[in-house]
Write a protein that binds this DNA or RNA. Structure first.
Lengths: 295, 295
DNA sequence: TCCATGGCATGCATTTTCGCATGATTGATA
DNA sequence: TATCAATCATGCGAAAATGCATGCCATGGA
């Protein structure tokens, strides 16, 4: 290690190559050609006077030295993300990008009109929507705002509870008719992977119940229910909104996870976030009845 | 703030420009031409979509945004320094640069033979010596090893106490003769800025003492003493080694600050540091008598 | 008032960096 | 076993970044 003339760009490149393991992976993360990554690595190795990777057929294998670099590079990256969040939070203008994330089904069946309205009100804001059930990392600025179905906002996040909601059992009209005629018949459940087993609180009027399918995706479950494969526990709003489904009394309405809007505390004050959250809360207040059973 | 395509090099450049205030200053710190700094700043401003500096006649004045960037850039720099220390500490080979710092006078009158020997033993090590009384920042790797005159090694540093030493009063032979003949005559002190006032513990045999000069530099004080301007309290080793000075009994030998060799804990294990510290301790043990009064 | 100094902007030539195309190697797959 | 996909190395021309020289402006002192 002689010159020690280290560029921060090269530190970042080493860090990403350790993280991804291949030139192509690191290059994509950096938004450059993979040849560039290879050359920066060579330059870094020259600067340190020490090999940082073993070149193997299936990628670059980090050495102890490069792992040490990556460890510190990760810390530098965390600081960079903190900076970017702070800068985002300072923004006052209602223009430029705003990335939000929400569960696909909430967007598809509930939020679309709000998003339509929002982009009309703020044509200068470039709204990007991540419709996914994955937990996107707000600290790393994968999104600015998240609408989440959970019991609390989470670490280092600020947020508001938008809605309380209930879930109930839904199925095809055919199933509905069958249940009415023959309550003692076997009830086939289609359940969510994360809540395996027959839902708790099922009515005693239906003595025979079993789990027939376990899915990892609610879109697919709803489709299966429409196709008549069984009964699905789902949020009220979804069962009511999906054509081809009707509520069935196997599982009476029970409280379900709340719906929150959250952002990193650094980003929360940003004008664009404020401009999004305000109409969102109004919208949810107006739509509240769709989420709970009629009383 | 739109593209947000931020390079770490540019973050570093913004940070240094905030720190130094002028293009030339930041450029020197980066080792590039100042035009390059100006261009990187323009690029960063384009990336953020926001001005980061006010161009004034006497330099670049940071805005709130660039101060925020610099704050995080400083943190990233700290991480970089930590990395460099760790890498330095891992080094096993006895070649390449090693930077040490010690007080000028200690080098000039005591350590030179050791340094001579060290470079003969390790010709592959490129030894750089910062002879200064300034506290160089070992955390920022301004030096790898420091020899310091103080009571303890300091934060986050590892070290060994090399020597205990005493100080006493020294003056020119002329003063020495005068003091012997006329103890009641006025004794002129030349004192160190950091210890203003007549040194504590001065002998009662000399009733008339005053501070005649206050200096900020021991080299100059010693020179003034040789020139006969007064009496100086200085470490034993120095008074004994300086031609033209003799010890005078105004201030009997009293304990003085210890001499330590220290390094950052991350750097301490490095082979080169080990190779330097070992002969240094041996050398100091052999020279110990020069630092205390004959008993 | 004039000049020296320190700081910055701009245009041009050079150096460095980068992306693309090609070819080689490895490991998995049909 | 043959093929395909993924990965890396290398050479070449394009693009970007850099350094240098020149000129401008403000400030402060002689």
């Amino acid at each position: 290690m002689h010159a020690m003339d280290m560029r921060w760009d090269d530190l970042q490149t080493v860090t990403l190559l350790v993280r991804h393991g291949t030139l192509a992976g690191a290059a994509e993360a950096l938004g450059v050609n993979y040849t560039t990554v290879a050359r920066r690595i060579r330059r870094a190795e020259a600067a340190f006077g020490e090999a940082l990777f073993e070149r193997l057929a299936d990628g670059y294998q980090p050495t102890d030295a490069s792992r040490l670099i990556a460890q510190h590079g990760d810390a530098m990256e965390d600081t960079e993300h903190a900076l970017m969040r702070r800068l985002k939070g300072r923004e006052a203008q209602l223009s430029g990008p705003l990335t939000i994330t929400a569960p696909q089904l909430l967007i598809a069946y509930v939020l679309s009109p709000l998003l339509d309205q929002f982009t009309r009100t703020h044509p200068q804001i470039d709204l990007r929507i991540l419709a996914t059930n994955e937990l996107v990392d707000l600290a790393r600025r994968e999104a600015d705002v998240a609408i989440r179905i959970s019991q609390n906002p989470g670490d280092a996040l600020k947020g508001l509870r938008l809605l309380e909601q209930e879930s109930a059992s839904f199925a095809s009209p055919k199933w509905s008719a069958l249940l009415q005629e023959a309550p003692e018949a076997m009830v086939d459940w289609i359940v969510y992977d994360v809540f395996p087993g027959v839902p708790k609180g099922a009515s005693a009027d239906y003595p025979n119940q079993r789990v027939r399918f376990r899915f990892d995706d609610m879109v697919a479950m709803a489709g299966a229910a429409v196709a008549g494969l069984g009964v699905v526990r789902m949020p009220m709003f979804l069962g009511r909104a999906m054509p081809g489904l009707v509520q069935v009394p196997v599982l009476p309405p029970v409280p379900y996870l709340d719906i929150w809007v959250v952002a990193h505390a650094d980003v929360w004050p940003s004008a664009k976030v404020r401009a999004f959250v305000k109409p969102l809360t109004d919208f949810c207040r107006a739509e509240r009845k769709r989420f709970v059973s009629d009383k």
